[in-house]
């Protein structure tokens, strides 16, 4: 058996190789250019952001030390040696964690209710009025782009310290995001059922109820549950600006270097978030299965 490669004569090979090398070279230049651009951007940013590698190298020990101290009690023993001491504030923290969850739930629910109605107005394919759609979209873009924490700061001025400000901040941010996602779902529906219902002479809201709603419900539910997960996380830190929930205690603990309290609260938050995540993904699969099954 011989090699199946019959080497081309040099004269034939050279132009082929040159052609290939030229193509590859121009592509490599392109890649190099992008790479250089990114590096330059990073260099400029690191000047603006006062990045200092010496500080980092110097202080990185502090980070590991910090993480280590998080898991030690004041007495210097590991937190696991004395869970009662570690979780000395369990009752209060549980109440605050509950408050956080209620904030996330109420905020999500209010946002979803608003987004539900607004999304049909915003969706270009079913909106009763084009201008209305534009106005709704712009408003929601505003709600989405301004960070929730900024809303929380404003609401704290109006409503005073406490969970009310946090709930409204969550609600308004949820509204902004969900109207965008919901109206995309509405824009992707099959128009025939809507036309079918409209053709019987039904009013706009009736056409939406029987023509559009059945098609969008599972998408809405899915996005709502995902948003709820995000809102739980967000509610947990709104307390940093005094807008209620467990964030207030966490902020204080970090600021005042109550190391073991920080880890105790963080562990509670991480577990809660993990539980909520698995619960919502379970519900999502169940519900979607149920809805598809009955269609």
């Amino acid at each position: 058996m011989s090699s199946p490669i019959v080497q081309l004569p040099e004269a034939q090979l050279r132009p082929l190789l040159a052609g290939y090398n030229a193509t590859v070279r121009s592509r490599r230049w392109h890649t190099l250019l992008i790479f250089v651009a990114v590096v330059v951007a990073m260099g400029l940013s690191s000047i603006a952001a006062e990045v200092s590698l010496p500080t980092f190298v110097d202080k990185i020990g502090n980070f590991t030390g910090y993480i280590g101290r998080l898991f030690h009690l004041d007495s210097g023993r590991g937190v696991w040696t004395d869970p009662v001491e570690w979780y000395w504030g369990l009752g209060r923290w549980l109440r605050l964690l509950g408050e956080t969850l209620v904030m996330a739930y109420v905020g999500t629910a209010l946002g979803v209710i608003g987004a539900f109605f607004l999304s049909f107005l915003a969706a270009t394919n079913v909106t009763p009025n084009r201008w209305l759609s534009v106005v709704v979209r712009r408003f929601c873009e505003f709600c989405r782009t301004v960070p929730g924490l900024v809303f929380a700061l404003m609401f704290v001025i109006a409503f005073g310290l406490g969970p009310m400000a946090g709930v409204l901040a969550v609600a308004i941010h949820t509204l902004g995001t969900l109207v965008k996602l919901f109206s995309e779902v509405v824009e992707n529906i099959d128009p025939k059922p809507v036309e079918g219902v409209s053709s019987t002479g039904a009013a706009w809201h009736v056409a939406m109820r029987f023509g559009a709603l059945p098609q969008v419900l599972s998408g809405f539910v899915s996005y709502t549950l995902l948003r709820f997960e995000i809102n739980v996380r967000e509610s947990a830190v709104l307390g940093f600006v005094g807008a209620g929930g467990i964030g207030m205690d966490l902020f204080e603990a970090i600021r005042k270097f109550y190391y073991s309290d920080v880890s105790a609260i963080l562990v509670m938050i991480v577990i809660t978030v993990a539980l909520i995540d698995s619960a919502t993904s379970l519900i999502r699969h169940r519900l979607l299965g149920l809805m598809d099954g009955h269609r």
Partner: peptide, 10 residues
Amino acid sequence: WISVVGLGPF
């Protein structure tokens, strides 16, 4: 990170 490297953008 503020506790580690101090206040600021870094």
